[in-house]
Design a protein around this nucleic acid. Structure first.
Lengths: 356, 356
DNA sequence: GTGAAAGCGCTAACAG
DNA sequence: CTGTTAGCGCTTTCAC
């Protein structure tokens, strides 16, 4: 049997290697590689033979070996500062999925509480050790971070940034349109006194969402009422305060549009504290469709922002940029994902009657 | 200059390699490797020279290359079913940290909604592709999963399982003691009508926590009152129902011990809905110290279970087992992490007065 | 203590 | 369409 595959001297485990598969399928390892990675130029019969061998042997490619060989040493950083648990969970899950899919190495870092100096230092440090960076809000608005990373020519992608800046790539939804649609949903239900809890002022998405709210009102011919607009900061706590003020108004709103689910959940809590039923006495809608939306009772009508799959896409974009030859011109992409209205149980017509 | 390091033909990136560091420090790559990995047998002077070179060049070892060379192709799976967002966030963060530290490759999978058949199939599949598995509750109680994985001799570690079973390694806290302590805290504040919302019956930790509650009461000489014990399922929603029942009692409790933070947060919400102030009219404590505890107002007094660092430890244990020579005897470890009482603002003496 | 040689498992590049 | 060659960057093994 001169067909014997290379002998492994140092192998510890007993994992199946590409050579064993190749031997079994009677092809070269290279062909196996092509089949496994879905390259096109392989005859169907060959492909099938290889697949069968893969199946029979239970072959799983060694990520370490392929990244090494492909020189795709792509380390990608995902840095964050105090997002809600539900938001970070989505972000992490999506990035992890993308990293597994592409064999990228994910580096997670918490930059909570960094001032500009610390941010600059951390960014400089980061630039030395990774090939790309994912920037969720509010870091994607940080001049300091973008400046340092740009200087080191480390590709970045802003995720859910609310707008496209031409400086860096971004993966986002159309926040304006999304919030306009959900406020229109409230209008269609018959509401005219619709309050808005704005998001954190340091984030562009907050502005977009507020503009969507204003646009929906304007198109419906509803006059803007400044007393119905409260500043929030995307946290549950800030939502508590904002709604407390709203419900203490002489003429309180019949519906509340919160700029994210956490604040909407807070609204439900305060409404109950005030003895109001949701949605009969007060309709409430959120934004993002994180798990916060389905945690509370009643479950929230909201807009789905597919954060996990956005993070996944972000990794693709980064990898594409990293693998591009340096000679290629720099490309900045703007990926706008689809949002989706999610109708649940927190909206009813005004006037105390439950929804049909 | 015949010192020139190996020429790289296929290298895409510009990352610093071990050879460059070696050249600069005038030692062999092997010595650099030893220094970087903290092996002992290196002269101090040499070590220092290498460290300086590493520093100056900004060298970061290539994980892919080292895992490949060390044949530590350790793929570790973390599978989960519907934990709360806050819980999963901690789990993910910890596992990610451990994976980055050790160059293990993390595989995350959602097994939500699998029946026994699907679980068995998935476990069999998983066994073929990973070297170790982390099992958070309730999967760590799944006979089917443990059976399949044991049969394939894939090392597992149960995390936060509530007890040690001798079948598989576990990383946990002492749930009994932890809950006993927090209930004692309630007792010390003067409460005698202390309710308990139990956790999901499919998890051993639920039982331990309930036993801790009972023990604290017994030691304080407080008679058990079955009407003050409600079944919960660790979800916010189940907490809502349980507390609703508790507060409708002719003689409602003055304090509630919820078996996790999500249910405690639900308790706060229901209390408010009933017009009760927390903690003046009702004290509430949780368990875990996830972000749910600090999201609500007032912030919850709870017991900290260091989930993230437990996940991190789990990876270490798995790796140690995986790397052990097959000839070594099988070792099952029981790692009990320290819990910690976290005093915040949700507890006051009974009788309507705020805490000093 | 330190170094030289020999791969780990895979894939880019180039033949055929 | 398929195979051959030559490594990717690191660590093991075994000399010295």
């Amino acid at each position: 049997m001169k067909k014997a595959a290379r002998k492994s001297v140092r192998r510890k485990g007993m994992a199946v290697t590409i050579d064993e598969v190749a031997a079994r399928a009677k092809v070269s390892p290279m062909t196996v590689s092509r089949v496994v990675n879905g390259h096109s130029k392989v005859r169907d019969a060959t492909r099938e033979r290889v697949m069968r061998a893969v199946q029979e042997l239970g072959y799983v490619p060694n990520r370490a070996a392929s990244s090494l060989a492909a020189a795709q040493d792509a380390r990608i950083a995902l840095i964050y500062t105090n997002p809600s648990a539900a938001y970070l969970r989505e972000l992490l899950l999506g990035a992890l999925h993308g990293a597994a899919r592409t064999a990228a190495q994910l580096v997670i870092a918490d930059w909570e509480g960094f001032d500009a100096t610390a941010e600059r230092k951390a960014a400089r440090e980061l630039a030395k050790s990774v090939g790309g960076v994912i920037l969720p809000p509010p870091l994607c608005e940080s001049k300091v971070v973008i400046e340092e990373l740009t200087r080191a020519s480390v590709p970045m992608v802003a995720i859910a940034s609310g707008h496209f800046s031409h400086d860096i790539s971004s993966v986002r939804i159309d926040d304006f349109l999304a919030s306009k649609e959900i406020v229109e949903h409230l209008v269609k239900a018959g509401h005219t006194r619709i309050a808005c809890i704005k998001g954190h002022p340091n984030q562009a998405a907050s502005t977009r969402r507020f503009e969507g709210y204003q646009a929906a009102l304007k198109e419906a011919g509803i006059a803007a009422d400044a007393s119905l607009v409260q500043q929030g900061y995307f946290t549950y706590r800030s939502g508590l305060d904002a709604v407390e003020k709203l419900l203490s108004l002489r003429k309180p709103p019949t519906a509340i549009f919160a700029s994210n689910d956490d604040m909407a959940a807070a609204a439900v809590s305060v409404a109950h504290r005030h003895g109001l039923r949701v949605p009969q006495d007060l309709s409430i809608v959120g934004f993002d469709d994180t798990s916060a939306a389905t945690t509370v009772w009643p479950e929230l009508t909201t807009v789905r922002q597919p954060i996990a799959s956005m993070a996944d896409s972000a990794i693709d974009i980064l990898l594409r940029t990293i693998r591009r030859k340096p000679s290629d011109t720099r490309v900045v992409v703007d990926h706008v994902a689809a949002h989706q209205l999610v109708l649940r149980d927190s909206v009813a017509p005004p006037g105390g009657k439950a929804r049909g």
